[in-house]
Amino acid sequence: MHPALSIILFTTASGAGYGLLALLGVLGPAGLTPEGPWFGGVSLALAFALIGGGLLCSTVHLGRPERAWRAFSQWRSSWLSREGVLSVVTFVPAGIFAIGWVILARLDGAIMVAGLLAALGAAATVVATAKIYASLRPIPEWASVYTLPAYLIFALMTGAVLLNALLHLFGAYSTAFSLFAAATIAAGWAWKRATWRHNDTAPLPVTANDATGLAGGRIRTVEWPHTEANYLMKEMGYRIARKHSARLRRITEAAAFAIPLGLTAGAALIGGIPAAVLAVLAVLAQAPGMLVERWLFFAEARHVVSLYYMPEHSGQAA
């Protein structure tokens, strides 16, 4: 699949934003973060900026962005519509939570409920995002049991790494949370490796014989229907990344998982200002790492329509 930069930025940024929002909504009222309005203001502003910026990025992918409001209408059948509705609905408790924390300086009662609802909305929005991909049967890499947990784990992981850096910057870090952040990175790393292992051996769900209705024998293309690459080939048959996928996977493993894991664990051990530097470096390493991870998520995904264009039936689509 063609990796569109707008969707890569949207899913990674809003995923991190929702992860951060969910953690703040739960840990803030529980008294596990600084209670002052400054910490709440800066942290929630960062979460809102990532979510809002991501949502804005996603409209760049649309052919007619001025009609984006129409996407709120078909929540009965469409996960994309549900994602849109949930993202907007989540802003209501999140907004109340932010007003309560930053302006009213309260984290109890209704504000606590708003925080928990914001966390719930954040999780539901990430689930909807994941289901958009997980329900696309023509793309085996996405329509697998690995997709939904991956989006949830990565949202929690990137949110936790961000919150860990914020806690260090505000001098309020706790070893327990640093270890939790490190654990989410380890979980994300293990899940990504398991996903790759699964994808590398997963065949396309259908064959060229199924695609053409021609039973038996091998199907070989004699002639394409057109001389130039068309929309299908450009959008579904993207193949540049596969050439470099081994190297890009190593970059992902290093930048998104190994380096942040080492830095987060290191920060948990040493404390003080050097630890804050390490925690921020973990964010700065993981952000590009996750962009590469998401790029591969698209670029390595095969679509069954490529069977119509493959030169020879080999079980692997172009």
Partner: peptide
């Protein structure tokens, strides 16, 4: 009503949908 998100093209295994980049 189409916003040009192209999700329908991803969902079609038969390659039946074609995006008009001029009209979006």
């Amino acid at each position: 009503k189409c916003i040009g998100c192209q999700l329908c093209a991803w969902a079609c295994p038969y390659g039946a949908r074609d995006f008009d980049f001029d009209v979006g």
